[in-house]
Simulated assay, not measured.
Amino acid sequence: MRFGILTPIVVQQPTEAAPWEAMAGVTELSRIAAAADQLGYHHLTCSEHVIIPAATAATRGSTYWDPLATLGFLAGRTRQIRLATNVLVLGYHHPLAIAKSYGTLDQLSGGRVVLGVGVGSLEEEFDLLEAPFADRGPRADDAIRALRAAWAQAIPEYAGTYYRFSGLVVDPHGVQRHLPIWVGGRTRRSLRRACEHGDGWKPFGLTLAQIADMLRTVDRPSGFDVVLQPRNLDPLGDPTGTRSNVERAFEAGATIINARFVHHGPDHLIEQLAALTTLFPDAGWTRPTFEQVTEEQP
């Protein structure tokens, strides 16, 4: 049992974001990330959208911080929490561009990158970036294979359906020998893609019953993660309901929780982060050692 956090402030969807997030910035973000790191949370997240059509901003939200810049900033303010894209749209990037940019982040963070990826669904964004939309699914499959071949390689080689490269130097590159890749989506194809090419599945827009039913239809590889996000975790105000929500997610197949909390400000959120570790003391919290903490002191 492991817990990460859906990072506040960096994504503000109308039905999810708390009012204080619209007025918050780097100071609050840094405090929350540092607290999650010190408490032993598995990961924090940042999503990707370049643009949102104004006509859909009321439902999708319009605030999406850039994940590479944001996670790079947070890498310098944390010690061991993993840095997860949630999710990176594969069609917007060449696999070598991902290997270079997120490989650099992997170097800077000491091997803490988790790459959450997806095929994307916002056609206007594909059009803006002049990225093919109709065949984005098979392109994504090939992109993951290409990324696997390129990751942590100074001179990668790959020959696939959509991507081919050889005789090129990528430096710096990732330091993890195996990059954890979580595939996002809400379809059976996304789950199959995750099982075939990834290390985990990060579904959205599905009920727990639907997720459990879909998981029963596949043979999951050893060590395969299922990352779920039960809503309205309130360990301070409703510990019983919080425990029930988390336990139902694990019964549905979760191995990692993307925690989204009830919170009324940064201080309250940090208190909620601490309260959840008390509510689930036997979870896989990874706390810094005394030596790591003292190394951070000036």
Rank of each mutant, 00 (worst) to 15 (best):
M1N: 10
R2T: 09
L6D: 14
T7I: 07
P8V: 04
V11G: 10
V11A: 14
W20D: 00
W20C: 01
W20H: 06
E21Q: 06
A24R: 11
A24E: 08
T27K: 15
L29G: 01
S30C: 11
R31Y: 09
R31Q: 15
A33R: 02
D37P: 10
L39F: 05
G40E: 08
Y41W: 01
H42G: 10
C46N: 12
S47D: 13
S47W: 12
P53R: 01
A57K: 13
R60P: 02
R60K: 12
G61E: 04
T63N: 13
Y64T: 00
L68E: 01
L68N: 01
A69P: 00
A75H: 02
R77Y: 00
R82F: 02
T85I: 00
N86Q: 13
H94F: 00
L96T: 04
L105T: 06
D106C: 05
Q107L: 11
G116P: 01
G120I: 02
S121N: 13
L122P: 00
E125K: 00
F126R: 03
D135K: 12
D141M: 08
D142W: 01
Q153D: 04
P156I: 06
E157P: 04
A159S: 15
T161D: 15
Y162A: 09
R164N: 13
R164Y: 05
L168N: 11
L168H: 14
V170Q: 11
G174S: 04
Q176I: 07
G185V: 09
G185E: 07
R186H: 14
T187D: 06
R188N: 14
L191D: 09
G198P: 04
G200V: 02
F204L: 07
D213T: 04
V218S: 03
V226S: 04
L228K: 02
L233H: 13
D234C: 00
D238A: 07
P239Q: 04
G241P: 08
E251D: 14
G253D: 09
T255F: 09
I256P: 00
R260I: 13
R260Y: 12
G265E: 09
D267N: 14
H268K: 06
L269E: 12
L279M: 03
P281A: 05
D282Q: 15
D282A: 12
R287L: 07
T294L: 14
E295P: 03
P298R: 13
P298S: 12
P298G: 08
